[in-house]
Write a protein that binds this DNA or RNA. Structure first.
Length: 434
DNA sequence: CATATCACG
DNA sequence: ACGTACGTGATATGG
């Protein structure tokens, strides 16, 4: 406590008003657990076993040799030595040639074996990490799995989840969504999923004061389409172009460079540079805000979230550490970003207030929501938090009431200069609820 | 136990 | 000249 007091009252408040009240909420979520359909997962596992065996056979036929598909080392040797595929599409790792999915996608049209490997990779990952693992962790008496929500692990203030990690349950592919069907509410209850819509971009709009973005959120506009319109300088935007806007909106939060932007959208590097500089021109306050965070990390040694949560940085005393105590606006950022490790730390500094403020807000919402559920004696249990999403199980007779309470509590957890919007879904399992 | 890979926000 | 997307946790391989 003494140490915290020295750091100011915001951190005392954060501790006493948010983190400490959150602890029993997390404890109850862990203890409640979430119900899992073991039989369903077992049948998925059998189906996967057959599919994987069939892919393996075809792979060995196409490659002309049998090998361990789960060994990146062996796969690299097959692809780049035996089959002599284009090594320029891969890169060196400490142990050989990279065979990660971005490499495989570049090689996909060069040899029939590659598509098989991609399919196998995805399905075997899902089987070993989720389909075969979750049933073993189900408590026999309750039919539920109980994760650990770690409150003091991350650098940004987010929670993490482990044993098992229930914050990375698959959703992005067709087969993934079938895994979500295994997550059930209490018998005869409903599963409810409520997530903040674009909370990090809204926080960025708030913290930066960028009027164009704020106005868009206030009007309920499609901000990815807006960004696409600003970058392409035209009114009508295709779905493809909107995707471009979305990539750059998210990329900026992480400090994405032109190369990565080009690679993940398919535009050329010079087009990517053009887009990034137009973005800077159209949303100048976003960039000055992000740069200010980098300057603060250097001059004060930390950056802060909405609730005063701090992420500290420790730069080499013989290098960037010398900038400690200097006027943030006198720091030459281009110079500071010179080193690879330092540049990464500075991107992390720019990102931390955004990611961390999002964590602040959902934590406040969780404490308030749990309090309201208890006060009103509502038959509903908080089960999971997935960074911008809360999952509950609810007695269907009280759905209308609980839905309204969840939305109101999450949206009012913190007042920003832009609205917080919550999307909600209800179903008989986690897939249906999304 | 290090490494590569990949699941999520 | 070049690079650079933030934050997590789990799995299989191979030494």
């Amino acid at each position: 406590m003494k140490k915290l007091q020295d750091l100011g009252s915001a951190l005392i408040d954060l501790l006493e008003q948010v983190e400490q009240p959150l602890e029993p909420v997390l404890a109850e979520m862990e203890s409640t657990g979430i119900r899992i359909d073991i039989q369903y997962l077992n049948s998925l596992s059998s189906e996967l076993r057959e599919t994987l065996e069939s892919i393996e056979k075809k792979t060995y036929e196409a490659a002309g040799v049998e090998f361990n598909l789960s060994s990146p080392k062996q796969l690299g040797e097959i692809l780049f030595e035996k089959l002599r595929l284009d090594r320029r599409k891969s890169r060196r790792t400490k142990t050989g040639w990279s065979t990660d999915v971005s490499v495989l996608e570049k090689l996909e049209l060069d040899h029939p074996v590659v598509a098989l490997v991609i399919e196998h990779r995805m399905l075997s990952k899902l089987r070993s990490t989720y389909v075969d693992t979750l049933p073993k962790l189900v408590e026999k008496e309750t039919g539920r799995v109980h994760t650990d929500f770690n409150q003091a692990v991350t650098a940004t203030g987010r929670l993490s989840s482990s044993n098992p990690n229930l914050q990375n349950i698959p959703i992005r592919t067709e087969f993934s969504r079938r895994i979500r069907k295994a997550f059930l509410p209490k018998k005869d209850w409903k599963l409810l999923s409520a997530d903040y819509s674009q909370i990090e971009l809204r926080i960025l709009a708030h913290l930066s004061g960028e009027e164009l973005l704020q106005e868009a959120f206030r009007n309920g506009d499609d901000v990815h389409a807006l960004t696409a319109r600003l970058l392409l300088d035209k009114d009508d935007i295709s779905l493809e172009e909107r995707r471009l806007g979305k990539t750059i909106n998210f990329g900026v939060i992480y400090g994405m460079g032109a190369q990565r932007f080009a690679r993940s959208t398919g535009v050329t590097k010079s087009e990517a540079k053009e887009f990034l500089s137009r973005f800077k021109l159209r949303y100048p306050k976003i960039f000055s805000f992000l740069e200010l965070q980098e300057r603060l990390a250097l001059s004060k040694g930390f950056v802060e979230t909405l609730l005063g949560r701090r992420r500290f940085f420790h730069f080499d005393r013989n290098g960037l550490g010398r900038l400690l105590g200097k006027d943030p606006y006198e720091i030459d950022l281009d110079l500071a970003r010179r080193g690879g490790l330092e540049a990464q730390q500075l991107r992390a500094a720019a990102n931390a207030p955004i990611q961390g403020s999002s964590a602040d807000i959902i934590k406040v919402a969780m404490v308030q929501l749990q309090e309201m559920l208890k006060l009103a004696n509502l038959p509903a249990n908080l089960l999971l938090q997935v960074h911008d999403e809360l999952v509950l199980e609810v007695d269907p007779n009280f759905l209308t009431e609980v839905k309204a309470l969840v939305i109101r509590t999450m949206q009012q957890a913190f007042s920003l200069d832009v609205p917080l919007v919550v999307d909600i879904g209800v179903g008989n399992n986690w897939m249906e609820a999304k």
